[in-house]
Nucleic acid binder design. Structure first.
Lengths: 337, 337
DNA sequence: TTCTTCACCGCAAAGCTTTGCAATAAGAGA
DNA sequence: TCTCTTATTGCAAAGCTTTGCGGTGAAGAA
């Protein structure tokens, strides 16, 4: 229902002057006499006038809203990035319109379309795990609608991206495992079309080489990050004639699943098998064994993504990829010295 | 920068007809001839025309946006509720504008003001832990802007609310503790002005009575839910001449803190002390000991809140309080039989 | 042949703000 | 007293959509 909001016209009528005079008075335009300016501003304050963003938007052709699409809304990783985006956006007078792809390509496409209908000024996106086509993003690019990717990225020649140094992170994991005497390191990766999968696999191969470990293709697995498939993979890995003595995963969830499975089998962590996660979910320190993991500067990722958004908005050609550093946080799950 | 979006005018010009004809043709108005209707619809589809929500909003005096304010964005409890709200809102063609109060009254007031500036059609709110004044909400009510509260509520004579049956939930906790032989049950509650605190305290007193347990005021504590203060309270409780043998808290976080502290002191859970949380955070099952807790139908809370919003929007006087049921999920932290 | 009646389509206003330009008035200079 | 500035203020258009109402032409009726 909601009563009509106060407009310039209301103020103008009350003061018996024209709308344009009110408009100018409110922004201290020199053309307007001091008394009128004062009277208008006083009344506006009293009545708590706020300009109508719809009218402004129509005029300026912008909504001051950024669409943000994430794979899910409920993990700390994304929530925290969103908080970062929101913070920076707010400082620029922008709002965020949030959408979740639920890790589903169709829903992602739908979200892009919905946000477009809402006339967001642009989007900041982390693609879903299923995203292997990019038409929906190319459409944005063609229409010169600012777009920024973070974490899971694509089209990086056209779009500014914020990522972490995945290769280096994995290198650190391998070195850490190696220093703790683990030799057969399994990597449960994600879908191969995802940037985070491929870059971490690179790091995996490099890290093995750097630490004088042999690459065994059987220990490198690509899953869909789902619990069921992950359990399947764990079972297969454990029943290998020469099973792994260490696991790390594309994210913490995968490794928590490993932890649960190993607990069921009464396999000792970190003595028999070492574990390292990826992302440092909020609850990593509450788990039965505190999890070694790669912390991400999530808040900073969000802020940076928002920053890039505003740069992109002013420079259509801009397409830098910003790489942020992670940190290996060593906890119980991998320390057996 | 973004190119200008396609408008009715563009279609009209291309077809050499008037804007109003295009507008009517798009909605199959009987006044428009079949051929023109077809031509217009074909072109609209081809060019991917979407109506401009700013213009519509200006005309209809509504933005189809709901402001949602939560204490934080990063706990699973709120994220999941938000997902529920978003789902229902989307089904009604509405978007969500998200804001966090960060558990801070000033930020909450600011958020209300910001959302108002953005001209949301109404708001769905869970108040911050500091919220003990309600002027900012009364202002909305006066202006007949639809408002719904959930979980932590207030002004329930004026505003529709969605809550859980806190009294019953706490009753269940007490009975469960009692059945497991715990006798001195401490409750670390939240700020006393919060609805969830007072209703759970009611349940606490009732539950004790129902189970023939004596109420000891020393075991009922109100904290600010912060880790530091919680630790302080735990220490005080444990150094009591007759310390508690069971804890439950206003939320899971508080109890996770207890769990950590007890672990440090090498106190055995659940043998020496039993623990029960509240809310069933995502990671309750990953903790060193799986946590007994009260699960909330979070998604349903969100959906219901959104439903009430749309009812309220059509019925200014509406102010029902919907009570949803929780469930006690018994896990390791409190089972010592 | 002339009037009536549909069938169709376009004009214009409303919703709100900004801003270029026109207009008015007063004051100053001649 | 008359013309020219200068200082203020208002008009109107643009941005986009919806919708009441008026308008046009053709076909049917008398």
């Amino acid at each position: 229902m909601a009563k009509r909001h106060l407009s310039l016209k209301d103020l103008a009528t009350e003061l018996n002057i024209s709308i344009s005079t009110v408009s100018r008075a409110l922004k201290n335009h020199p053309d307007i006499s001091p008394e009128i300016t004062r009277k208008v501003q006083d009344l506006a304050l009293l009545r708590n006038y706020v300009p109508n963003p719809l009218a402004m938007g129509l005029l300026k052709q912008e909504t001051k809203m950024i669409g943000v699409i994430v794979p899910d809304l409920v993990t700390h990783f994304y929530s925290s990035i969103i908080a970062g985006i929101e913070e920076y956006a707010k400082s620029q007078g922008y709002f965020i319109l949030l959408a979740s792809s639920y890790e589903n390509l169709q829903k992602e496409i739908e979200s892009v379309s919905n946000l477009l209908k809402a006339r967001v000024d642009g989007m900041i996106v982390c693609v879903s795990k299923e995203t292997n086509r990019f038409d929906h993003f190319l459409q944005l690019i063609e229409n010169e609608i600012p777009l920024v990717f973070f974490d899971r990225v694509c089209l990086s020649e056209l779009v500014p991206c914020v990522v972490v140094d995945n290769k280096e992170a994995v290198n650190q994991i391998i070195s850490h495992f190696s220093q703790n005497g683990y030799k057969r390191i399994a990597f449960i990766s994600g879908p191969s079309h995802l940037s985070i999968s491929s870059s971490r696999i690179e790091g995996y191969l490099e890290g093995l080489k750097n630490n004088g470990l042999k690459f065994d293709p059987e220990l490198l697995r690509s899953g869909n990050m789902g619990t069921e498939e992950t359990i399947q993979i764990i079972e297969e890995l454990l029943s290998l004639p020469n099973p792994p003595d260490a696991f790390f995963g594309i994210n913490d969830m995968v490794i928590f699943t490993v932890m649960k499975e190993l607990k069921k089998l009464r396999i000792k962590i970190p003595d028999e098998i070492g574990l390292v996660g990826f992302a440092d979910e909020f609850h990593a320190t509450f788990s039965s064994l505190e999890l070694t993991t790669i912390t991400h500067p999530t808040h900073e990722i969000g802020v940076k993504a928002a920053e890039l958004f505003f740069i992109k908005k002013e420079n259509p050609g801009y397409a830098e990829t910003v790489v942020l550093q992670t940190q290996l946080v060593i906890r119980e799950s991998s320390s057996r010295n």
